[in-house]
Design a protein around this nucleic acid. Sequence first.
DNA 1: TTGTAAGCGTTATCAT
DNA 2: ATGATAACGCTTACAA
Lengths: 346, 346
Amino acid sequence: MKEVIKLAKKRTIYDIAAELELAPGTISKVLNHTGNVSDKTRERVLSYIKQVGYVPTSSARMLKSKRTYTIGVVFTEESDIGLEHSFFSSILQAFKTHVENEGYELSFIVRKLGKNHLTYYEWCMNKRVDGVYIVVGDFNDQGLHEILESGIPAVSTDMFLPGLHTVVSDNDQGMKISMEYIKNELKKQHVAMVGGPVTSKAFVERLISFQKYVKEYNFATSTKDIVLSESFGFTGGFNAVQQLMKQVTTKPEVILAASDDIALGVIKGLTSMGIKIPQEIQVIGFDDIAFARHFTPSLTTIAQNRKLLGETAAKMLIQLIESPEEEIDEIITLPVSLIERESTKK
Amino acid sequence: MKEVIKLAKKRTIYDIAAELELAPGTISKVLNHTGNVSDKTRERVLSYIKQVGYVPTSSARMLKSKRTYTIGVVFTEESDIGLEHSFFSSILQAFKTHVENEGYELSFIVRKLGKNHLTYYEWCMNKRVDGVYIVVGDFNDQGLHEILESGIPAVSTDMFLPGLHTVVSDNDQGMKISMEYIKNELKKQHVAMVGGPVTSKAFVERLISFQKYVKEYNFATSTKDIVLSESFGFTGGFNAVQQLMKQVTTKPEVILAASDDIALGVIKGLTSMGIKIPQEIQVIGFDDIAFARHFTPSLTTIAQNRKLLGETAAKMLIQLIESPEEEIDEIITLPVSLIERESTKK
DNA sequence: TTGTAAGCGTTATCAT
DNA sequence: ATGATAACGCTTACAA
């Protein structure tokens, strides 16, 4: 047997007004801190509202006011990165926490609404989101460009696009720290790199910086010491390092990986070839994902401040939404730091 | 200088009607597959709509129709599990993919809306969500009980509450498979368990089943061979196993962990004590998280079908929403399976 | 300071 | 088969 308890009928602003012997407009004013209301009335309304648990219906409010207090989230599910990917998830988590505190809510942008397929831009127009946050975006996605062109406030922690406000970690600084650490602390000369797929701007930057510092610090590194992983993850690193070891003439002393996922795959690949880490080859990652600490050997890596990345993006977007007239830097770069663990040894 | 490109004025159903020389009501009918419209007109409307990229404004539609096509997601952020926790994230991901295909969208339930603090229930009433999905919920949260009492369709993949439809893995079967594997394949007698915090029903079930099968299969296991991790994660397992090894009289041959996170912590703890896995002690986990495969040694574990869990929950909820008159089982139990890896050895 | 009333863009009930 | 029209619950000029 099924019992469905009747939903309490929802009170409208008219009910509240009637019960208080006031006009709906007055209630609305106190709700929105707008117009003139006497302190006495305001108090009366506020306390009554709290008492009966009245909350304005958001669809009506949105319909009328054009403000939705909703932020659309783009989280591309290509290349096996989705909510499951802890690096992006935790940035999103930090972002979410912050915007919720400011009274915004998150809504995933999808390509479907009811039975209709639509572009990112159409979705945004339809939902009337106040802003867009691109956690992971596909550069080739035309829908993203449409959003930017439309002028909807948008931020990203991943992509660089003209007009798109972005907050990222300082990839160049990260590589510099790694390279200086290798040179000055580890005192090694021959360093190789397992880069990530160049579809990601971050991976491109890390690769370029690597090459720059190889030259600058005179490392004994040739083009044969560089190999690119075909995918974002562990398996990519695992495969790439096999390739690296095959094409290289002498075994590198240190391997830099473009991400922790890749680095962990590199370590596993090396281990499976009977190579000891860090005794024979040392490995340094990038990101500081949760498992970097737990892996055996634990991973020396460049830590990105994910919490700060998400929070900063949140602040940036809210500023863009609420004070569109203020000019702010299009790109904010956050510092990174080296975390020493067992995969390197002085 | 800041350039804001003017947003294209949004077309309303009236515009479409005017442009097509029809009545708004007619457009609405074809949009909602309702009422009578001639095939010819339907085609004309449909193709025109697609051509100009018209999509009905959801707030207006919601306001009028009382249907929001939105599902509220409860994802409690206590006990360091949030979006970052890959196990729950991937269930949510599967859920999300499925409901989006059915035209629903997800919205995280929060305790704040604008400047107002509210309970889960108030939030649901306010947003008029069609249903609620509890990914991770806090049993003690009064707001959850209110939701159930209110009759809003709700499903969970985590909690058991009277009236709450739930889909879970078969924990008892999982423990049974593990124990039979230990007895028949590994041919071991002395098995210990590192349980999880009893705040989670799943952990309680696994513990009870463990004790049941210890008795049933006559394992050489005493109460000293059972220890409970204080937290969900890796560190909990790491600490718990130290405790276990301290209180135990003879070293167990196999350790069962209540989750993979805990199991990985157990392995690391054991390794740090100089104990070889699987030569000296074998370890079996539960969940099959992504890293179980990548860890060294890779982890033998009971695999939960996360994709199926999320999908089944999605189907269940949609059925509850769209066919409330149909009676369906309150609890659906999904089978699990053993994945053999390096942490055990026949 | 408070009340009145006209929309916002839909859906749904009637007429036609 | 199609067209008018009244809600839905709120915000916001404007009037009192």
